[in-house]
């Protein structure tokens, strides 16, 4: 059984009386522990696909089986729970809460999940150490470099031990060297068994993935 299975997914945005087919009859199967790069020109539907996979968006038609369970029919609360426990997000623009410290940002998912305080601080301390942020625990995002911010975001995405990490252009706001660092971190997580799905424009970064899915105009045009 694949970890993720999309069957003829359609996603249509209606803008006034024009319709945008962001995803057309898309099928995709992903095994646990895979490393996939989703590539393609701007507007081809990469982000839309990732949002669907992350249960931030619902398809207009088709089914999404996550670990064998149809998740498109879940209630909003149940979907939130799946996001909390199974999915980690990494964004291009980091999306850290500006008034919270690095440590507090990393702890956010655990706070939302209601994990006890002691356990939280223990895990945060470990994550800060793992990502080389120990000396930055009490810094706010505006006191961190881009690379450090993305490392905080990755620490946050992994703190709940998710089954998959979804990253939308995680290196888009970083210089080449820092970007490669960050990719290295994500790949390290993948090596430990977490499914990694990365959207990227960058052919060089995309080629590091074992599997590459190319999108064009809402369709999967290549998958190898």
């Amino acid at each position: 059984m694949p970890q993720i299975e999309l069957r003829s997914i359609e996603r249509v945005f209606t803008l006034g009386d024009s319709e945008v087919h962001a995803l057309r009859t898309l099928d995709l199967a992903v095994e646990a522990g895979e490393y996939i790069a989703i590539m393609g020109p701007s507007g081809s539907g990469k982000s839309t696909l990732l949002n669907l996979l992350g249960l931030l968006d619902r398809p207009n038609s088709g089914t999404y089986l996550l670990e064998g369970r149809d998740v498109t029919t879940l209630t909003a609360e149940e979907q939130a729970r799946v996001r909390r426990e199974r999915i980690g997000f990494v964004f291009q623009s980091f999306h850290l809460v500006p008034r919270l410290t690095a440590a507090e940002n990393i702890a956010l998912p655990m706070m939302l999940a209601g994990i006890p305080h002691g356990e939280r601080s223990r895990r945060v301390a470990q994550a800060l150490k793992d990502y080389g942020l120990a000396s930055r625990a009490d810094h706010r995002p505006d006191q961190l470099s881009g690379g450090q911010r993305q490392r905080v975001a990755i620490a946050r995405a992994t703190i709940m031990h998710p089954a998959m990490i979804l990253a939308d252009e995680p290196t888009g706001n970083l210089d080449r060297a820092t970007g490669e660092d960050v990719m290295g971190l994500l790949e390290g997580l993948n090596a430990s068994g977490v499914t990694l799905i990365v959207v990227t424009h960058d052919a060089v970064l995309g080629n590091r993935a074992r599997r590459r899915v190319a999108m064009e105009d809402g369709r999967k045009v290549e998958d190898r």
């Binding site: 931030l56 996001r83 997000f89 809460v97 998912p109 939302l112």
Partner: peptide
């Protein structure tokens, strides 16, 4: 955008 983030991190509407 913070609300979007919280939702992505698994916050329910109620929270």
């Amino acid at each position: 955008s913070e609300i979007g983030l919280l939702k992505a991190l698994g916050a329910t509407g109620g929270a």
